[in-house]
């Protein structure tokens, strides 16, 4: 009787200590998934998703309160990558990918106020005070932050023009399987 009680108590004590040590030793700081997801996001904090910056979105996706298709600049590619990361399947057919867009300055209306320059998260607008601004295509993510700031509505978002290098064969549409 005594032996049984002692041995079980000892066992319980040892295992309890082990668990306690493990909990301390392998403690996880923050949410690693959210950090990993944040690393995948565009990081321009453009706010098109309606959330406060990319890290907030990453947290929301990790918690499951936002879908992987939430990020408009990330488009299909990001949605696929996130779905793979989270191990979920996503119906990309429904992703409204309006296609890549870039900002364009209407030269005749631009007054050179520099507000768009300051708003651009990727420094894609170049120009100087009282000079007409311009957008560097390669750097523009089409987030639209500049559009709201322009006092003369000189900036618009346009689809990236399709070139021979960018053209992709459309997916065949088969009537019999519709």
């Amino acid at each position: 009787m005594l032996a049984a009680v002692t041995s079980l108590t000892a066992l319980g004590a040892i295992l309890g200590c082990g668990l306690g040590v493990a909990a301390r030793k392998f403690a996880v700081e923050g949410d690693p998934l959210a950090d990993e997801i944040e690393a995948m996001m565009p990081g321009s904090n453009c706010g098109q998703c309606g959330m406060a910056g990319c890290s907030a979105v990453a947290k929301a996706i990790a918690e499951g309160s936002a879908t992987v298709t939430i990020c408009p600049p990330g488009g299909k590619a990001l949605a696929t990558a996130l779905a793979a990361k989270l191990g979920i399947s996503v119906d990309l057919g429904d992703v409204v990918d309006s296609g890549p867009q870039i900002a364009q300055v209407k030269e005749e209306i631009c007054i050179g106020c520099c507000r768009c320059m300051k708003a651009c998260p990727t420094d894609a607008v170049v120009g100087a005070a009282k000079q007409i601004h311009n957008v560097i295509r390669e750097a523009c993510t089409g987030c639209g932050s500049c559009v709201e700031r322009c006092p003369t509505e000189a900036i618009t978002l346009r689809p990236v023009p399709v070139t021979l290098q960018h053209w992709v064969w459309p997916k065949p549409e088969i009537e019999a399987e519709a």
Binding site: G75, D97, G99, P100, V160, V162, V168, W169, P170, E173
Partner: peptide, 13 residues
């Protein structure tokens, strides 16, 4: 980058 597709698909080889 997924470009805008033309309205009608060309005939394929």
């Amino acid at each position: 980058m997924i470009p805008v597709l033309p309205a009608s698909a060309p005939a394929t080889a």
